[in-house]
Each structure stands twice: as structure tokens, then as C-alpha cells.
Design a protein around this nucleic acid. Structure first.
Length: 895
RNA sequence: GGGCGAUUAGCUCAGUUGGUUAGAGCGCUUGCUCGACACGCAAGAGGUCACUGGUUCGAAUCCAGUAUCGCCCACCA
């Protein structure tokens, strides 16, 4: 596309469609284990295979892409492994819903094998969507390495891990209270339960003592579970109930005689101080049940309806319907004492969005304590760094209170647990293959465990399973441990913590060195983005409207550090306008002819050959290069985009480009060549700095302008380095020079202010007389008369130390000089006086503050010398300015 | 109940280890079709940095407390 005339406006769609396939086909995204370069690796947080691209994905993957592209330019062998997650419950539910709607079938109608076939079909058909969408934002993923958590190799890793942990005694099967999702009909881990504050009720009702001597009143939020009560508990020291301990009550409806036990789990102050105990439906009651050797009666089916143990009267009822009837009947029986309003937390199934049912059942668990210890240490010791690091606290809290992980799920879509049960004696054997013969009863018939594993049981292996573990592959050796992980803080327990544990356990090395936690994206009014609120923009539509680079840049630009993002589509104008700005700066450059051949090496240049503005932009560029690298090193992406935006828009376009324009249009040939070279150097460097954030437009312009040949790529260009002190010195790009140029710009602004005040069009050429405050200042201003004249939009500029002209004129007073602008017929004496008086007030106020500081003995004595000296210098400057302002005011008076 | 975070211009947010007159984008005002760009240019207006106290020569920045909002964790039925 190079050497063509640039269109007037940037057309993102065309550029994106041109470059992405080329990058991919040229193999730029590939990471090779054979490389001698240092590796830089990222594994993508695998999105759900059924998912669609969201803005969350855009943010997350743009950040990873920035890291990968940046590190590639720094000379690393980068490898970004993409892939998807089979997402057990989510995917299975989705396909079940689809089958229900289209064919009226349930998974049970089809049976396990046929159902799984349908899920695979579904995955084949829709599973690639999010992967295709990811390409639209420009991600430099190594697509040949795309993995899926149910791939044979990854499934092998899952099985291997299960067996090793089992053999080590870390995995066990146990009868426990777990969180049950009645909608998905499966066990869940503690992390998959989200608690919602709800306005509920506290029902107080009484149980009759079996001996007929009275009643005991209990309080509950869940009356329906009374059918499974096997005791009533009171506090051992509760005087009210001392006489009742050891007696029994008779449970209504089921007529079970249950004991009153004493247990200090009971809070005397809450409710009536007496608690009904349902060991099979409450984790605390379960503990009480164990302590007192109580029977455990499960009264519900797996779908949340009441079972046969709930007596025929209630069997088959939904748990909430059952609650209503129980309450009603208790009332009719005169047992209901009172109903209180009661706010409490109700656990919901994250995926099913229905209240979970604590349920006693047989499940597989992982003992976590031993795994957690080294994982906590790795983060505490800084082997893994969190960004922002406050998440360490959250991590530490969870790790030090870690519970065993319930890993079995009563689903079909997932990794089936490699455990086999003997048909003869029921013996359970965990093995890589179906056992041939039972070691106990010699039976040959075994059936495999029906349960599958929690999806996270495969995700936690992702950083090494994608490289072929447990095989010791060259990829694994080269690319593990990975470098950075970019993910949301919401999965710190689900995923991040567990990956650290798995990495240390199975690879004996942390899985990554840095974890960057992204922001949560909200809409303009602060609400979380969600489908149901219909406030979740489709990133592909945004890309169509604004362009991928614009979306990427905007997301990073508006993402506050460690805070939530307030997003709206309109904000993408920031990125779009910025892209247009860059595009037009390049268009301007293209119009000046081909780029200088020696734009990249300034080694032969020295200060004398350069204008102050050239030296200034080189100094600024060098600072920006250094700060961008520093920002990325610290994962301060937002800071980097703000730096670049400011530099490109204001310093490069508004000041340098305008200054160069003067040279290009009115300068001599030799000067033109030098300025062209500096211009090209700065522009090319800026494009490289911008490339990780805005890959498409930078690649396009790098070619169109001719910085590299068509077959090359900005992706392969070296990341810019700041100039050394010696080089800056040689080029005259010193701090002193930067200060002088900044003062010159301030003078220019002051002159423009006069024009603006009198509504003189910017384009109107004026006469300007400049009286410098020092001879050196005058010399400095004379160094580049062409640019100065253009910047002032002046017909003529006279620099004189003694100017005596009288008559109506606008006056600009700056630190560097006083500038006079005779504007015959336009000057309003009163307006001019007001303008100068206002400036004078400002100067006086400032001087007042400074004098106060300097007259403070302690300040002069205790503040660093430089600070005090700076204050004195400022005071002198302002004092000078003040006297010049007063002079002008006096002159006005005279005229 | 415990922990974390936020509070700076009308709105959304920057402000690194305390040190010039606290910045940006959007919005607002005024003027500009000047040979890259109206997705633009130029010049402006706008802030007692939530509150109270402390440390310090000096605090938006450090410390303590208060208020409001948000998030996470926790077995009071």
C-alpha cells in the first residue's frame, strides 16, 4: 500500500482487513521453542467456548496484546497461547436449553452418549465464534497453538493430575454437605455460590415435648427443612432450657421423636435460643449432627423437590411450595408462634441463578492446605507480583482460610473422573485405565464414575497443559514459566490461586511472574455491563464504527488504575480522533516528499545544525520513550497512553509540526533537509511507541511513509531507546534548551492572546516587536526567525532591546520578553488596561505567596537549598514582570 | 462482623518517592473554512483536592478519626 496517496480520512476497516491476515500468514505471531531469543510467554485466560466477545474481553486481550507486541519489539521470542474453556455448566445448560426449545428434548431423553455428541456438534458449530472475534481486535496470538480444555492432550493432563493427587492422598471421596444447584442438578464449589442480601422471614414455631409437658419454640428461615430435623439444640449454659436438655420432642407431620441436645454452637441471644437441627440440609447442623451422632435425613430430590422422606403429604412439592404449606399447616395446628421480618444472605448458584441447597452427598474433594502453603509463600516472597498489589491481601486471606475443594460435578460435559467401581464388591479403583480385575473380589466388571470434574480442575493446569504436560516437551521447557497473566480479580480464587498451586505442585515453578488485574467495565451510569440490562455494546459494532485501534486506545486511555471503567461508545471518539490526528500528521509529511534515508541515525548531527525546536522535540521524544518503557515495565498502560496522546497531539502536532511547516515552506534547502530528518525520526519513533496499542494504523503509516519496505513490518522493528546523556548533550537537547523553548512558546501564546482578545483572526498577519528581558534571550529568539514568524503569524518580527514606539498597541508580557503588537484602530484602551490589570493581580498574588514562604525563617533554614533558590528565582522573575506590567499601565495612562 | 477501594473542574478521571501558580478529555464561552486534520485550530472561563485533627519549613500526596458510596469475605438458625 506504500507510495499511494493517503486518503483524507483514515479508513480503519480496510487497513485492518489488509494487515491482520498478512501478520498471521507471515508467521509473526508464532513462538518457536528453537529460538535463541529470550522467551516471553502469556497464556490467554480461555474464554468460554460458547461465549461472545464482550468489552471485558477487549480490554483484557488488548492488554495482553500490548505486552506481547512490546516484548516482541524488545527482542523477545514471544508466545501468546490462545484457547477456549469447555465451561461445564454454562455450555451444558446452553445446549440443554437449545434442545428443549428446538426439539423438546432433555438430556435424559438422549442419554449420556448421544447428548455429548450433540454438545460436540454445537461446539463445532458455534465454538469458534469468540476466537474469530478476537482476531478483529488485532490480537497477536499464536493461533497454531490454539487449545481447548477438552482436547485429548489436555484431558490427559487432567487425568494425570487427578491420579497423582489421589495417590498422594490429596484427593478423597467423602460424604459431606456441599452446595447443590437444583437447576443444574450438580454439586458446586464454595466459590460458585454468590450471596445476595434478601428480605426474608424468621418463622418461630413450637415443637411439643414428647412427654406432653410443654413446648419448645424454635426459629428458622427455612421451615420446609423441618421435615429433616433430627434434633433441637440449645446452648448448654442457657438457663431457660436446662430442664429440657435430654428430653425429646415429636416432630409434626413425620412424627419423629427427636432429642433436645446442648451445643455451644447455639447463640443464646438469637431468636428463641433454640435451633432446629437439620444435619442433611445445613452445614452447621451437619457439624452438630456429627457431634451428637444424629441421624441425617435428606428430604429433597436433586431438583429441589421434596422426596419420599418428606412424607407423602409433601413429596414431589417444590421446596418453596412446601414451605408455604408447612407454614400454613403449622398455623392451623396452632404451632406457629410468630413471623418476623429478617434480612439475611441467601446463597445463589452462580450459573443457575437459583438458591443453592446445602445438601449431604457423596463427592470428590481436593485437600487444599498443603497445596496452598507454597502458593501463598510464592506471592508473599514476591516470586509472583500482583498489580495492583493490594490484591495480595485478598489472596492471603483466602489462602489462609482455604477449604477443601469439591471437584465432582453431576454433569455430563466435562472430564470424567478416572475412578472405577467393581460391579461385584463396589471397590473403588482410581487408575489410568479401566481395571481388568478387582483386587478384592476378582470380578472383571467395572463401571466408571459417572461424575465429571469441575471445569476449573482443567483450567488450573492451563499454563503447562497447553505446552504438552505431562510430557517434557521442548515447548514446556522453553515457554514455562509464563511471564504475565492478565485477568479479572473476580477469578482470583477460582483460577489465579489454583494455577499457582498447580504450577508449584506439578512443575515446581510458579506459572507466571506478574499478574495484572483488569478493571471491571461499567456503563456511563456505573452499572455493570450485562445482557439483561441491555447496556452491553457489541465490540464488533464499535469496531465497525470507530475502528479497532480507536477502541483499543480508548479502553486503555479511560481505564483508571485499579478502578472500574465507566464506558460508553461515545468515548471511542477519543481514540478515533487521535487516530485521525496521527493519520493527518502523516499525510502532511507525505506531502513533503519521500522520507529521509537517514531518519533513524542522528549520529552525525550536532547542536549547531539544529534549530532550537528540533533540539526541543528530540529532548521531549527521548523523555517520552523513557517514560513509555517505564510505564509498561510497571504495567501502567493508562499512563503510557496519556503520555503518548499528550506528546503526539500537543508537542509534536501543535508545536513541532507547525514549526517544521515554516521551514518546509519558507526555509533554505539545507535547513529543510535537517528538519525533515528530525521530523521523520520523531514520527517513526512515535509510531513504534504507539504500535502495541494501535497496531493497525501504525503498521499502515510505517509503510505508506516508506520507513520500511512492504515485506517488512513494524512488528519486527526495535522498541525505541532514549538517547544517552552524551547524545542529548551533543544534539543540544538539554534541559536548559527545553526550558528556553518552553519560554518561547509562552511568549507566542501571550501574543496570540492579544489577537484573541481583540477578535483578530489567527490568520491575520501582524507586526510584532519583541523586547527581550536579556540580550541572551534576544540571541535565542534570533536563532530561528522563520519559525518564530510563522508561530506568531506575523508579517514582520522585530527583536530589539530598546523599543520606544508609542501609540495604541497590544502588549504581551512574558518571562522571556515583552512583545508589542500595534493594532491600529483595534486597540481599546480600557480593555487593554483591564487585561494588564488582571495579569498584574495574578503576579501580585503569586509574589505575595512566595514572599511569605521566603520570610518564613524555618522554610529558608530547613527546606533544601534548591527549593529555596527556585523560590527566589521565581520571585525575581515575577518582580521583573510586575515592573514591566506597571510600565505598560503607566504608558496607557499617558496615551 | 472483618477486609479492601473510592471521594480532586458541570461530567469522567490523572496527579509517581510531600516541594513552582493542582492537570487531561468531554462539556461550556469567544474567535477562526490559516496550504495535515471541523474527528480540526487558537484563546479563555471553571477547583476552599469529602470533612476534622495531627506530623512537617511545606500536605491533594503521610498518619488518625468521621461521613457517604462501592466491592469482597464471614456458619448467628
Amino acid at each position: 500500500m506504500s507510495n499511494e496517496q493517503l486518503t483524507k480520512a483514515y479508513n480503519p476497516a480496510e487497513v485492518e482487513a489488509t494487515w491482520y491476515p498478512q501478520w498471521e500468514s507471515r508467521g509473526y505471531f508464532k513462538g518457536s521453542a528453537d529460538s535463541t531469543k529470550r522467551p516471553y510467554t502469556i497464556v490467554i485466560p480461555p474464554p468460554n467456548v460458547t461465549g461472545m466477545l464482550t468489552l471485558g474481553h477487549v480490554l483484557n486481550n488488548t492488554l495482553q496484546d500490548i505486552l506481547i507486541r512490546w516484548k516482541k519489539m524488545q527482542g523477545y521470542e514471544t508466545c501468546w497461547v490462545p484457547g477456549t474453556d469447555h465451561a461445564g455448566i454454562a455450555t451444558q445448560s446452553k445446549v440443554e436449553a437449545f434442545l428443549r426449545e428446538t426439539e423438546g428434548l432433555t438430556r435424559y431423553d438422549l442419554g449420556r452418549e448421544d447428548f455429548l455428541e450433540r454438545v460436540w456438534e454445537w461446539k463445532q458449530k458455534y465454538g469458534g465464534t469468540i476466537i474469530r472475534q478476537l482476531r478483529c481486535i488485532g490480537t497477536a496470538c499464536d493461533w497454531e497453538r490454539e487449545r481447548f480444555t477438552l482436547d485429548p492432550a489436555l484431558s490427559k493432563a487432567v487425568e494425570e493430575v487427578f491420579i497423582r493427587l489421589y495417590e498422594k492422598g490429596y484427593i478423597y471421596k467423602g460424604h459431606r454437605i456441599i452446595n447443590w444447584c437444583p437447576k443444574s442438578r450438580t454439586a458446586l464449589s464454595d466459590e460458585e455460590v454468590i450471596y445476595k442480601q434478601e428480605k426474608g422471614k424468621l418463622w418461630n414455631y413450637r415443637y411439643a415435648l414428647t412427654d406432653g409437658s410443654g413446648y419448645i419454640t424454635v426459629a428458622t428461615t427455612r421451615p420446609e427443612t423441618m421435615l429433616g430435623d433430627t434434633a433441637v439444640a440449645v446452648h448448654p449454659e442457657d438457663e431457660r432450657y436446662q430442664a429440657l436438655i435430654g428430653k425429646t420432642v415429636t416432630l409434626p407431620f413425620v412424627n419423629r421423636e427427636i432429642p433436645i441436645v446442648a451445643d455451644d454452637y447455639v447463640e443464646k441471644e438469637f431468636g428463641t435460643g433454640a435451633v432446629k437441627i437439620t444435619p442433611a440440609h445445613d452445614p452447621n447442623d451437619y457439624e452438630v449432627g456429627l457431634r451428637h451422632n444424629l441421624p441425617m435425613v435428606n428430604v429433597m430430590n436433586d431438583d429441589g423437590t421434596m422426596n419420599h422422606d418428606a412424607t407423602p403429604a409433601f413429596q414431589g412439592l417444590d421446596r418453596y411450595e412446601c414451605r408455604k404449606r408447612i407454614v400454613k399447616q403449622l398455623e392451623e395446628m396452632g404451632l406457629l408462634v410468630s413471623i418476623e421480618e429478617h434480612d439475611h444472605q441467601v446463597g445463589y448458584s452462580e450459573r443457575g441463578d437459583v438458591p443453592v441447597e446445602p445438601r449431604l452427598s457423596e463427592q470428590w474433594f481436593v485437600k487444599m492446605q498443603e497445596l496452598a502453603a507454597p502458593a501463598l509463600k510464592a506471592v508473599e516472597d514476591g516470586d509472583i507480583r500482583f498489580h495492583p498489589d493490594r490484591w495480595v491481601k485478598t489472596y492471603r486471606h483466602w489462602m489462609t482460610n482455604i477449604k477443601d475443594w469439591c471437584i465432582s460435578r453431576q454433569l455430563w460435559w466435562g472430564h470424567r473422573i478416572p475412578a472405577y467401581y467393581c460391579a461385584g464388591c463396589g471397590e473403588c479403583v482410581v487408575a489410568r485405565e479401566r481395571p481388568g480385575r478387582c483386587p478384592k473380589c476378582s470380578t472383571h466388571e467395572f463401571h466408571q464414575e459417572e461424575d465429571v470434574l469441575d471445569t476449573w480442575f482443567s483450567s488450573w493446569l492451563w499454563p503447562f497443559s497447553v505446552f504438552g504436560w505431562p510430557e517434557k516437551t521442548p515447548d514446556l521447557k522453553h515457554f514455562y514459566a509464563t511471564d504475565a497473566l492478565v485477568t479479572g480479580p473476580d477469578i482470583i480464587f477460582f483460577w489465579v490461586a489454583r494455577m499457582i498451586m498447580a504450577g508449584l505442585e506439578f512443575q515446581e515453578e510458579v506459572p507466571f511472574k506478574d499478574v495484572y488485574f483488569t478493571s471491571i467495565i461499567r456503563d456511563d451510569t456505573g452499572r455493570k455491563l450485562s445482557k439483561s440490562l441491555n447496556n452491553s455494546p457489541d465490540p464488533l459494532e464499535v469496531i465497525e464504527t470507530y475502528g479497532a485501534d480507536a477502541l483499543r486506545f480508548t479502553m486503555i486511555y479511560i481505564a483508571p488504575v485499579g478502578q472500574d471503567i465507566r464506558y460508553s461508545n461515545e468515548k471511542c471518539e477519543i481514540g478515533r480522533n487521535f487516530a485521525t490526528k496521527i493519520w493527518n500528521a502523516a499525510r502532511f509529511r507525505a506531502a513533503q516528499g519521500p522520507v529521509a534515508s537517514d531518519w533513524n541515525d542522528l549520529g552525525d548531527l550536532s547542536a549547531e545544525a539544529l534549530r532550537p525546536d528540533d533540539r526541543w522535540i528530540l529532548a521531549r521524544l527521548s523523555q517520552v520513550v523513557a517514560s513509555c518503557t517505564d510505564s509498561l515495565d510497571r504495567f501502567s498502560f493508562h499512563e503510557m497512553t496519556h503520555n503518548l496522546y499528550e506528546f503526539v497531539w500537543n508537542e509534536f502536532c501543535s508545536w513541532y509540526l507547525e514549526s517544521a511547516k515554516a521551514v518546509f515552506y519558507d526555509g533554505d534547502e539545507a535547513g529543510k533537509q535537517v528538519t525533515l530528518r528530525i521530523f521523520d525520526h520523531v514520527l517513526a519513533t512515535a509510531l513504534r511507541l504507539l504500535h502495541p496499542v494501535m497496531p493497525f494504523i501504525t503498521e499502515e503509516l510505517y509503510h505508506t511513509l516508506g520507513f520500511i519496505p512492504q515485506e517488512d513490518s513494524i512488528m519486527l522493528a526495535a522498541w525505541p531507546q532514549p538517547l544517552s546523556e552524551a547524545e542529548l548533550e551533543r544534539l543540544g537537547a538539554t534541559a536548559d534548551l527545553v526550558g528556553k523553548v518552553a519560554a518561547k512558546f509562552a511568549l507566542v501564546r501571550a501574543v496570540r492572546n492579544i489577537k484573541s482578545n481583540y477578535n483578530v483572526p489567527v490568520s491575520k498577519k501582524i507586526e510584532v516587536v519583541i523586547v527581550p528581558t536579556s540580550p541572551e534571550g534576544g540571541d535565542f529568539l534570533r536563532l530561528d526567525p522563520v519559525a518564530l514568524k510563522a508561530q506568531l503569524t506575523a508579517a514582520s518580527v522585530e527583536i530589539s532591546l530598546d523599543y520606544q514606539e508609542t501609540g495604541p498597541k497590544g502588549v504581551a508580557v512574558s518571562e522571556l520578553a515583552t512583545a508589542y503588537v500595534p493594532l491600529a484602530g483595534l486597540i481599546d484602551i480600557e480593555a487593554e488596561r483591564a487585561r494588564l490589570e488582571k495579569q498584574k493581580d495574578e503576579v501580585l498574588a503569586f509574589m505575595d505567596r512566595t514572599r511569605k514562604k521566603l520570610s518564613n525563617e524555618n522554610f529558608v533554614k530547613r527546606a533544601p537549598v534548591e527549593v529555596v533558590e527556585r523560590e527566589r528565582e521565581l520571585l525575581r522573575e515575577q518582580d521583573d514582570k510586575l515592573s514591566r506590567l506597571e510600565e505598560q499601565l503607566t504608558a496607557l495612562q499617558a496615551s
